[in-house]
Structure formats: C-alpha cells, structure tokens
Design a protein around this nucleic acid. Structure first.
Length: 324
DNA sequence: ACAATTTGACCATA
DNA sequence: TATGGTCAAATTGT
C-alpha cells in the first residue's frame, strides 16, 4: 500500500498585502532578479566545481584526513537555497509582502549567525504590540494556500525525524476524523517554517494522510547518515539513503533515525481516533516502512545535481517554473 | 516551573 | 457565508 502525492509548491499568503515597493520600483525588482540569477548561476558553477573536485580528491585523499569540502558544499547549498527562495518570492506572486520577506531574512540571518536573541526580540515586539492594541490582535496572522509542498498517505503514523508542536485540531467537512495541525518545534528558536497536517482518512485498514508545508530550516538532532531499508520484503523496494554528502538534509522529509521516539505522534493516534489504538506499540511497527516513499520535488532537483551537474541547471529552472 | 496540548474564538479565503 | 487554518488562554503533563 503505497500512495504518495506530489502536490506542488507552497504559496504563502499574507494578511497585509504590500504592493507598494513593487509598484514603485519595477526596475529595481528586475535588477534584483538579474542579480539573484547571476548569484545563483555562480553558486551552481561552484557546486559543479566542488563536485568535480570531490571526485578527484576522494581518490587521492588519505583515510581519516579531514576535508572542508562538506562544509563548503553545505555553504553552497545554503546560498542556492537562499537564491531560490528569494527568486520564488519575487516570481511566485504579486503580493509578496514585505512582512514575509522580512521574516525570511531574519530567519536566515539568525540561523547563519546563531543569534536567536534577535528573533526573540522580534517575537517580544509582536507580543507587546498585540497587548497594546486589540485591533492588531492578529496582525501577523498568516494562512497558507491549499497546496502542500508534498504529502503522503500512510497506513501507520511514522516518525519522520522532526519534532513537531501541535497547535490545533479541527473537524473537517466530510471527514470522520480530526485533522491535526503541527508546526516545527524550532519555529521560534530557529525560525523553522515547516508545518504538517495529519488526518486519518480511512477506517479499515487505517490510513493517514500527512501533508507537509514548507521545508525544515532547523538544525534538529538528526543522523543524516541513516539508511532506511524496509524490513518487509513484500513492501516497497525503495531504499532510502540519507547520505549527507551532497544532499540537503534540511529538506529531507525523513532525515533522522526512525528509532527516535516521538510522543507527539503516538498521542495523535489516540486523540484522532478517540480510542486506544495500539498499532504503534513497538519500534518494529514504526519500521514497517512500506508506505513511505520520498517525494519532495525540490530535493529531487537537488539530487539531480549530484549526478548530473549539467542537467541540474535545467532542472533548477524547471523547478522555478513549476513553483511559479 | 516549564513545556506541550487542548480548545474555542478569530480570521482569511473561496 | 461556510470552511478550515491559526492564535492564544486554559489545561494537562513532566
């Protein structure tokens, strides 16, 4: 039983439309776009050089010697990611708000310079603003579009390696079960924007739909080297490898050890069904991994770049077209 | 005491 | 206006 749906890019809508800047400086936007494209191209070239250099040094390098390549690669990936996000913001919609852009900038800065205090102060500012004026009670309220970044149906609730904080649940139309809303636990301290929704959609056999929105930008306690192999031979033959040599572990939907306990999702089973389901009674159950197939568009693009450096550029452009 | 969850209200969107 | 996504106070858990 494998069912995975690719549901397109995520669009974020803001409460406060801000078209001012765009209307005022269309040329500025174009210049920004050109500049970003240039930067992205250079980053891509650098990535290709690194990939080439790596294949050489890998053979020559002595065992045990440390290399700065992973660090540099990671850096390049982040640069690329930054360019991509900015370009998407510029291209995806006309109402890209100043607010959204600001929050992303803050997030990136904070994660790169490890200064969570800045974010805290921003949060505090927002809080005090809300207290001061009830009119501004939900000034920062944002709502995402219908289309998730990616989604999957699963016959069991599987630990995906991230720590989620439940922030709501809702009974939806034509559904027998509650839909639970989760955001990354590191939303506040690291500005991670990843979210997911989990809803049981079928009774017998139980089937859960999980929709993911956005990607993790947080640094959680993950083991990027994990290789997941389904225990059941009758299950999907897909082998999930999370070697971090060049993959973006931050965008990986299943990045960490499945062995890690996740009390949130265990609780979710009980709450969603209002009955004491014990399907996840053992870790073996968690590792019955027949429903999990990786299906993340952006990471696919990134993976393309590992083996086909030349094609990566085309794929990258396609991804922009896709998202736009 | 602190952290996580629950829950009803608020609010954007179709 | 109905629906569903989010907020935040209250509640519960550790």
């Amino acid at each position: 039983m494998v069912s995975v749906s690719l549901l397109g890019g995520h669009n974020w809508h803001s409460v406060i439309p801000n078209r001012k800047m765009e209307n005022q400086i269309p040329n500025g936007k174009r210049a920004m776009e050109e500049e970003l494209n240039r930067g992205r191209d250079m980053a891509n070239q650098l990535l290709q050089v690194l990939a080439h250099d790596k294949s050489i040094t890998h053979l020559e390098k002595e065992e045990g010697s440390k290399s700065v390549l992973p660090f540099v690669e990671d850096l390049v990936r982040k640069v690329l990611c930054s360019f991509t996000n900015t370009l998407l913001l510029l291209n995806s919609s006309n109402d890209v708000s100043h607010e959204v852009a600001t929050s992303i900038t803050l997030r990136d800065v904070s994660s790169s310079t490890s200064s969570p205090k800045k974010l805290e102060s921003v949060d505090e500012t927002c809080k005090s603003r809300n207290i001061l004026s009830t009119e501004n009670l939900r000034r920062g309220y944002k709502r995402k579009s219908i289309a998730p970044t990616w989604g999957k149906d699963s016959c069991i609730l599987v630990e995906d390696g991230y720590v989620w904080r439940k922030y709501g649940q809702k009974m939806t139309m034509n559904a027998k079960y509650l839909r639970s809303y989760y955001r990354c636990t590191h939303k506040n301290d690291q500005g991670c924007q990843a979210m997911k929704q989990v809803q049981r959609i079928q009774d017998n056999p139980p089937l859960y739909r999980t929709n993911y929105y956005g990607h993790h930008t947080c640094k959680s306690n993950m083991n990027p080297e994990i290789v997941l192999e389904p225990l059941s031979l009758s299950a999907s033959s897909t082998l999930l490898s999370f070697n971090n040599s060049l993959h973006s572990k931050q965008e990986n939907p299943f990045p960490s050890s499945l062995l890690a306990s996740n009390k949130h999702e265990h609780m979710e089973v009980i709450h969603d069904e209002h009955s004491a389901q014990s399907q996840l009674s053992s870790l073996e159950d968690l590792l019955l991994y027949d429903c999990e197939v990786y299906c993340d568009y952006s990471r696919r693009v990134a993976m393309l770049s590992l083996t086909e450096p030349v094609e990566f550029e085309n794929a990258f452009i396609s991804s922009l077209d896709f998202a736009g």
